[in-house]
Design a protein around this nucleic acid. Structure first.
Length: 112
RNA sequence: AGAGUCGGUCAGACGGUUGCGGAUAUUUUUAUAUCUGAGGAAAGUCCGAGCCCCACAGGGCAGAAUAGCGGCUAACGGCCGCCGAGGGUGACCUUAGGGAAAGUGCAACAGAGAUAUACCGCCGUAUUUAUACGGUAAGGGUGGAAAGGCGAGGUAAGAGCUCACCGGUCUCACGGGAACGUCGAGAUCCUGUAAACCCUAUUCGGAGCAACGUUAACUGUGGCGAUACAUUUGCCCGAUGUGCCACGAAAAACGGCUUGAGCGCAAGGGGCAACCCUGCGUCGAGAUAGAUAACCGUCCACGACAGAACUCGGCUUACCGACCGACUCAACAU
RNA sequence: GGAGACGUAUCGAAGUGGUCAUAACGGGGCUGACUCGAAAUCAGUUAGGGAGCAAUCCCCCGCGAGUUCGAAUCUCGCCGUCUCCG
């Protein structure tokens, strides 16, 4: 398994928001943008709407865990930017991961 | 067992699988092994310091903070003890608590009058018998507050005008280290407000790790200015320097970054206590888009508030609960 | 992480101890006049909550305490919004 590469710079986030594909789930919004590299890159946004530091940290951990489980079937060579929504705080990471799979399959981004 | 007061401790536990940050060792990169990994408030940023830079820190004015006394502390606006005031049957709790006798201001409305006054009333004098003039703060009414309160003497009527007592203030005496206390003696100053200006005492240069340093890179373009600008609140003086602003280089990297006024001890000593001295033991995060998670199982009281960002000492605020110790009150039983 | 500033009707904003802020002033809304109709102009009106049959009364200047006879104003503590930094 490849190590997780994180997205840090603001312009990479903006690029994903503006020109990437968007997939909406009840717990988060996923933006995928094709890059030239051959691995998975992840960026997480947990804004002030989610809550204070404890809630935002929890949201980031849940997304990281769900993304790690999903990484086996996600296409390589993409930047993934995931924006947390408030409802993510009440569920487990397996639920989040299932919602990712469902949204991406219905949109045709991945095929079974 | 009931009602209550004060102080302290803990902040779900255990096991398995998969992952994350840091350190050390091995290693060609990779990786592997071991150890370790958030809080009592990490929070608010309200005070005080360390550290660091600006002239190593200058002078004057302005300004700010604190406010019973004594102690503790690196320091503090913090803590401990005591005094005064207030609350509680009590254990105990609360307390911005210097000066109004240096000076100035303010006290709306109401009321005759707000620091000075005469509306009604009372008394005296004059006379046209109802008014004028004068005296008065006892009584009425207004107000948060009306010459400290109350009684007696006194008087035309009255008034600290005089006297006794009481409250407050000041001086002396006695007690106490001091605040302060006292059937003590004297003075006879007495509306409130200083979280109004102010006075007194003490303290304060400014800025903050996005500070600052090193490496790399640029020495450019435009604007302002030598009667100028900068040295981080205002004004003046002094000293030192030559710049300052915008744009580009620019999406910089690394250090600072954790061993410190550190933590623990049913150890010894001093102190009522805060705390201090000695001894022994110990190393308990150091990230840089920011590390503690996911899933499964078992148990119970079913898990609150909440996430380090240079580091400490406090304060304040948030918080499901559990446990321990000391003490008070009421009632009953033995 | 650190340093500041600001919260007043629907919006902007004045008031900085004193008769109830008739919540000034401006914008907006509503009603009327003018118009065939509208705009512009002119005039009037306009926050919310509670008690009461009503007249009317009480509360409210982000929230909670305190000082004062009296607080939007002074002091302290919270909450929210915004700005700045190499």
């Amino acid at each position: 398994m490849n190590r997780l590469v994180k997205i840090k710079e603001n312009y990479e986030f903006r690029r994903a928001y503006n020109r990437g594909k968007a997939f909406v789930t009840p717990y988060a919004v996923i933006y995928a943008f094709k890059n030239k590299s051959n691995n998975l890159r992840l960026g997480i946004t947990a804004g002030k709407k989610i809550g204070k530091a404890v809630q935002r940290n929890r949201a980031k951990r849940l997304i990281t865990a769900a993304f790690r489980n999903a990484s086996s079937y996600l296409p390589m060579g993409y930047d993934y930017v995931i924006v947390a929504r408030v409802r993510i705080l009440n569920v487990k990471s397996t639920v989040v991961e299932r919602s990712f799979y469902k949204a991406l399959t219905e949109a045709g981004f991945i095929n079974k």
